[in-house]
Design a binder for these strands. Structure first.
Lengths: 153, 153
DNA sequence: CTCGGTGCAAAGCTTTTGCATCCGC
DNA sequence: GCGGATGCAAAAGCTTTGCACCGAG
C-alpha cells in the first residue's frame, strides 16, 4: 500500500515532538520504522515488520524494532493487540477511527467493527469504579454464517 | 480457598459427560487438575497451577496441564485470557457470573465488572455481520483514582 | 567527545513436541 | 493387550538482554 504522505508528515511531527519532549534521539531507524508502519494496512507482528524492512534492504535489527514499537505505543501512534495467540500484533492508530475486532474461530480472519456504546460503557465503568480508563480492547469470537467465509477447520 | 464440594460435583459431572461424548479417557490427572482449578480463586497461569499441584505432592507434568487446560477450555469449564502480557491466564467459569476486566496500568491489578450492555452489543454485531459469536473479551486499561489503589510505577 | 541507540547473538520464558512408559478401557 | 495419555526433556517461538560499536547532539 502506498504511503499517505500528508498523513505521514502529520504523524512524523507528533513523533518528533514526542522524542524531543522525552529527550530521545531522532535516529533514522525510528523514522524508517514509523514510515513502514504507516505504509501498511491492517495488523502486523514484529517479524512481518522486520522482514518487510529487510526486503527493502533496510538494515535494522529486531531489537531496534521492539524498542521503537514500545516508543510508538507510548506516544499512541500505534496500538498493540493480543488476539488470543501468544504473539503481539500491532496496528497504526493515528488518523483512523477507533474500532474493535471480531475474530473467526475457524479461519482466524479479523474483522473490524465500531459501536459507540462501547465508549459509553467505558465512561460509565470508569466513573463507577473510579478509574481513568485510557483505552480498551474488545474482541468477539465466533463463526461466520455466510457462505463466503473462509472457514477452514 | 476451600473447594465448594457441591459445585465441584456438578462440574465433575459435566466434565465426565464431555469426556464420554468425545471418547477421551477419564484419567486421574484430568480430575485432579479440574479440582485444583475449582479450589482456586481469581486468575492463574500454567506455572502457578503446576506449582500448586507440585506443592501438594501431586505428580503432574506441565505437558499434561497444558493438555487438560485445552480440554477444559473446549467444554467451557474454564476461560482463557491474554491480559496484554505474553502469558496466558485462566479462570474457572462454571457457576460464576459472566464478567469483564479492568486492569490498572500502574499496579496491574485486575478488577472484575459486569455490564449487560456488552451482551447487547455482542448480539447486535453478530446479527449485523452474520456471525455466531460464542464469547468475547473486553478489557479496560486505566489508572485508579482512589487513594487505596496499589499504584506502584 | 559523550552516551544513548543500534546490531548481533545469546539468554529467558512460555508453550509445543518427541518418545518411551504407563494405564484406562 | 491396545492405543490414548502421561512424564520428561528437548525443541521451538517470541521477546529481552548484554556488549561492543556507532553516530546524534
Amino acid at each position: 500500500m502506498p504511503l499517505n504522505t500528508n498523513l505521514y508528515e502529520e504523524v512524523k511531527k507528533i513523533f518528533l515532538a514526542y522524542l524531543e519532549k522525552k529527550e530521545l534521539r531522532k535516529t533514522p531507524e525510528r523514522f524508517a520504522i514509523l514510515e513502514e508502519i504507516y505504509s501498511r494496512t491492517d495488523h502486523f507482528d514484529v517479524e512481518e515488520l522486520y522482514i518487510s524492512m529487510k526486503n527493502k534492504n533496510y538494515r535494522v535489527s529486531r531489537a531496534t524494532v521492539y524498542n521503537t514499537l514500545d516508543i510508538l505505543l507510548d506516544c499512541n501512534l500505534i496500538v498493540k493487540h493480543q488476539f488470543g495467540k501468544n504473539l503481539a500484533q500491532y496496528e497504526k492508530s493515528y488518523g483512523f477511527k477507533q474500532h474493535d475486532h471480531l475474530i473467526c474461530t475457524h479461519c482466524h480472519k479479523v474483522t473490524e467493527f465500531c459501536d459507540p456504546r462501547v465508549q459509553n460503557i467505558q465512561n460509565m465503568i470508569g466513573d463507577l469504579l473510579q478509574f481513568d480508563i485510557m483505552h480498551h480492547s474488545l474482541i468477539f469470537y465466533g463463526e461466520c454464517k455466510k457462505e463466503n467465509c473462509e472457514n477452514k477447520a
